[in-house]
């Protein structure tokens, strides 16, 4: 269903987008896509970006990344990985130490007016002027970004985010979830082509999280490119087309979501054997079993998302072979472990 990440075929990615969307949204998107050539320059191009804070701490260690127009890109990484720093540089809040960033082909420092006008930012921290009204604050945002007033657009945005009823009340009176939506409305009020969502669901309950996912999907239909950060795998899974994994200021990998999910969806089952095994019997070679702990453990790696995990047949086959075990544990690789293995894999290759 997903286009493979082949560099020669950006068109494939575009097609992948179309192929994946459901009929109602297809019309809009297809129309947009067809008006432009399939092969387009990336909307954002990050080259050799580093950041060393005044404290001497290096938060980014040479990031290279291209974001395609119209995609949803999830930046996945644990706390302190450098996600917010990366976003802040692109948006102009933090100055980079080295490297450069192009947005829509323009340099974010030299042509900052052009690049910033294209970008909307919803920061990690909720920061709102409590004494303002949602309507006034959205108008302000639009003006600040250099756009002429457009009441119809502000109305549409506030309605889309279910804030229209609250437009003339004080922001103070909004709930946390509403405030977060208001931050999104503000970021959208100047009709940006790119939207950054920094941890949009941090500290948000499950219900609201689902709403957020639906909203992101809706924005994508409008053709907005979305870059979001998260430290939840499931969130990247639910929303993104592509995922970049960042850790300790390094971008460890960038992959189509489908490929990544396969890597991350693996689980290991470990059997503690009663008697150590010298070798794995031939009939199991196809399953890719491994021996560990000097033959005292048998390890089976399987895909949780596959139709059949093969566990039942493995267990009955083991009994047929007379291999007995005392204990059985299964373990899903945690994000941390995946990071470790990814970094490790990077060292080897």
């Amino acid at each position: 269903m997903f286009a493979p990440p082949q560099p020669h075929a950006k068109a494939a990615a575009a097609l992948g987008l179309i192929a994946r969307c459901k009929p109602p949204m297809c019309s809009v998107l297809t129309a947009r896509r067809l008006q432009r050539p399939f092969v387009t320059d990336p909307i954002i191009s990050i080259q050799g970006l580093t950041k060393t804070y005044a404290s001497g701490f290096q938060a980014l260690k040479g990031i290279d990344l291209d974001i395609r127009e119209g995609e949803i890109f999830a930046l996945l990484g644990p706390n302190g990985a450098g996600k917010t720093t990366l976003i802040s540089i692109i948006c102009g809040i933090v100055t980079a130490s080295a490297g450069r960033v192009l947005v829509g082909g323009y340099d974010i420092v030299r042509d900052y007016r052009k690049t910033r006008a294209m970008i909307g930012l919803v920061p990690q921290e909720l920061a709102t002027d409590s004494f303002e009204t949602p309507l006034a604050t959205c108008r302000y945002s639009r003006g600040l970004f250099g756009r002429k007033p457009n009441p119809a657009h502000i109305e549409k945005t506030l309605k889309q985010l279910s804030l229209w009823d609250k437009r003339n009340g004080m922001i103070m009176a909004l709930s946390g979830g509403m405030k977060r939506r208001l931050m999104i409305a503000k970021a959208l009020s100047h009709e940006p082509r790119v939207l950054f969502l920094d941890e949009p669901t941090a500290g948000v309950d499950v219900e609201l999280r689902k709403d957020m996912w639906a909203l992101v999907e809706e924005l994508r239909r409008d053709g907005v490119t979305i870059i979001l950060t998260t430290h939840y795998i499931e969130e990247a899974e639910a929303m993104a087309d592509r995922v970049g994994v960042i850790n300790h200021g390094d971008l460890i990998l960038v992959e189509e979501k489908a490929a990544l999910m396969q890597k991350m969806g693996q689980k290991r089952m470990v059997l503690d054997l009663t008697e150590p095994l010298a070798a794995i019997p031939n009939r199991f070679t196809a399953l890719g079993l491994e021996l560990a702990n000097e033959g005292r453990q048998l390890v089976y790696t399987y895909d949780t998302q596959a139709e059949r995990t093969g566990i039942t047949s493995l267990l009955s086959d083991l009994r047929d072979e007379g291999i007995r075990f005392r204990d059985l544990t299964t373990k899903q690789s945690s994000l941390e472990e995946i990071f470790v293995s990814l970094v490790h894999a990077g060292d080897v290759s």
């Binding site: 920061a127 600040l144 970004f145």
Partner: peptide, 16 residues
């Protein structure tokens, strides 16, 4: 005030 409550981010990220 915007520095204090954090809304300054918007001005810093705006094309002004």
């Amino acid at each position: 005030f915007p520095k204090f409550i954090g809304t300054i981010f918007e001005m810093l990220s705006a094309p002004v």
